[in-house]
Design a protein around this nucleic acid. Sequence first.
DNA 1: TCCAATCAGTTTATGAATAAACCAATTGCG
DNA 2: CGCAATTGGTTTATTCATAAACTGATTGGA
Lengths: 147, 147
Amino acid sequence: MKENTTNPSASNNEERLGLMLWFRITRIYNQSIRESNQHLKKWNLSAAQFDILVQVGSHERLSQQELANKLFVTKGNITQLLRKMEELGLIKREQEWKTKYLSLTEEGKEFFHEVVPKQEHFQASQFANLNETEKQQLLDLLSKVQK
Amino acid sequence: MKENTTNPSASNNEERLGLMLWFRITRIYNQSIRESNQHLKKWNLSAAQFDILVQVGSHERLSQQELANKLFVTKGNITQLLRKMEELGLIKREQEWKTKYLSLTEEGKEFFHEVVPKQEHFQASQFANLNETEKQQLLDLLSKVQK
DNA sequence: TCCAATCAGTTTATGAATAAACCAATTGCG
DNA sequence: CGCAATTGGTTTATTCATAAACTGATTGGA
């Protein structure tokens, strides 16, 4: 499997590794997001919506900006996603001063308890090739990448 | 044992790790793609186009389907991206029987030699928090995830 | 006091990616 | 034969996500 070793150029090893890591991560992401969406289809939910469900479900008084920061996406993106989830009746937005605080509706909570454990189980299966130690190692390394 | 609280950590460690890995990877990806796009703007190129440039530039006689497989995206996506890159004059498609083989135009090759080393340098900097051993470790673990 | 800066959120236009349906050509096999 | 399955690519409708410009409200200095 030298698919990526095909010499992006004659630079040093350190840089070659960086590019290979980039490629590898985008590929894992592409594959993973696709399979997750497929799996979440059962509940008519997208991966993005699932992420929001988890965050809002497990944090009190989250503002939209805070949510955006947690998910590393833009606040514009959050606005759009929330509008849809509000329409679906899963999320409530309560304005206080200029800030909108988020929480799950009753229906959202039911969904949360229904979907999260199952999706969790599914996500775990995507890393089935790693044993527990390796998973922990991978998580540590990835955390370190993001400081 | 569904005494699940509002908290993913109520399940076993193995599964909790899986979900955390998923979140971590999507966040790194989101952040990384954004910064890469920003960086590639200098050349009016997107990350997706860059990926194609690299693959086509370093493999002879690649078909569209093969390219899609290498990048873990759908062939429909490839069709769209190639159309644009063809318009930009970076890529040639040569049909042989029903297969279209890809190659870089002269301009594409120039671009390749201009952009790749610089982008490589940039990508490397995104993993600056890891030393060389750790990078190699991370790459090995990620490869293992994808079998 | 007033004006610039900031902050939370929204809007708009655009690009990336998908799934699913499709076309045309080739092949396999009953 | 003849027809179904496969293969490579395209099209279409839809979802995600971004950047950038915007609104309105608040605040902090000169």
